[in-house]
Design a protein around this nucleic acid. Structure first.
Lengths: 230, 230
DNA sequence: AATAAAACATGATAATTATCAGTTTTTACA
DNA sequence: TGTAAAAACTGATAATTATCATGTTTTATT
């Protein structure tokens, strides 16, 4: 059942591609495959991580609780991403919780392997560094969006993002189905406000809905809305 | 006039401390000291950076313009920080502008030196990685604050932060003097709203003002306000 | 020292968003 | 398959924040 990292396509999309054959073998021998069910969490804010998670399949949300008890989703992870790197690198508690949005398959890689490789292989360090640089840039963008865009604009942006990054099924519905609550926590708004906005978008013909599922009808218009050219 | 990196105290606080003697010498020989006057910018969003800036003295703001033309300050830099690392590491355009808040002394270090050292010295990569991990964590916190706290809470937090990180003078005023506009751009609010809030804090005895200068009187109360225990 | 420009400040009002209360629909599972 | 729980939704209202208009103070410059 346990397949080898050497044959794993997912590796190509993350920092593990910088590993040598021997290093990869070590990772492969020590990794533990796990299945995470939708709704279960991989790790929780404030926890000390013993390693990182390489995502083979499924999507998760990285979120943080604010002091008032509301959840804020900081990032959605894609297939191929490595989670928990920040925490392992900084030898720090996780600042985020990771929860599966749909069923996931992940490989747990013990932190010793990661830190050893970081110390020995400059290429690997550089790869990790590049990925973190990318995440940091995205985080900066989120900050600006949060502070300067309206809920409406942020929601429009979210729809465009979800369509672009996770695609749609044959009926034109977003492949990644999120709860209204999750949408609210991505966009940073009260759930009721968000639901109202979805109704509004629907009324305007920008999106269509079928139960939880949402289909993006007018990407262009949504993009313009997000950019403030309403 | 040009002093040597080997004797620079500032180095201890950033990733350059991981450099060997020879590497440090190379940096020292190729670096260019610059004085940046208050209000001038070190670099601008979208620019390609030819190197990084090591801050010997002074404070700068890292900011980003949103599509509606408003500025959002993402981070204030401290003495000792290295700026532009993200961009150089990712071989990317800067996503942020850096503007001096007071007069600054910085050393420009060409990117070739940085990338060479990154490739050769795993310790240096690791140090940079740790710093970036720290920045990423802070960015996540800012996202949560932006989306879940009120302007009032964020302003209270800003005052506590500024007192803690930059200190106060003998009369109890914050050493770092920001314009009301800058405060608004940190907190993510309209300048008028922010000014009103400052008046309110003053009326409640939480802070005192003298022209542009602001003194924090009740750290505890401000902290509680920021945390939502109003 | 005079003056223009920039920064600071306040009031009135409008827009955005949250909160509370309640209903309907969907989902999970005994 | 029936039923309880969870999620989705709607309305009324309140709180927060932005915008516009305008006046005052401070700062920089000649």
């Amino acid at each position: 059942m346990e397949s080898k990292c050497e044959n794993c396509i997912v590796r190509q999309f993350n920092s593990l591609r910088a590993l040598s054959k021997e290093e990869l073998k070590k990772v492969s021998d020590s990794k533990i495959s796990k299945k995470i069910k939708k709704g279960d969490s991989l790790f929780v804010e404030g926890q000390k991580l013993d390693g990182v998670y390489c995502v083979r399949d499924g999507v998760s949300k990285l979120s943080k609780l604010s002091s008032n008890g509301k959840e804020q989703i900081v990032k959605l992870t894609n297939k191929g991403e490595v989670m928990g790197q920040r925490s392992v690198v900084a030898e720090d508690f996780t600042n985020l919780s990771a929860t599966a949005i749909n069923d996931m398959e992940v490989c747990f890689i013990p932190k010793e392997i990661i830190s050893n490789t970081l110390n020995m292989n400059p290429n690997f360090s550089l790869e990790v560094l590049r990925h973190m640089a990318h995440d940091l840039k995205e985080a900066d963008d989120v900050i600006v969006n949060m502070s300067q865009k309206t809920v409406k604009q942020r929601l429009a942006e979210a729809f465009v993002y979800l369509k672009k990054n996770y695609g749609e099924d044959e009926d034109g519905f977003l492949v990644l189905t999120l709860s209204r609550d999750d949408y609210a926590n991505i966009v940073g708004a009260a759930t009721e406000s968000l639901i109202r906005m979805i109704s509004e978008f629907k009324k305007k013909g920008l999106i269509k809905t079928l139960g939880k599922k949402i289909g993006v009808l007018e990407v262009q218009a949504l993009q313009e809305l997000a950019d403030g050219f309403k």
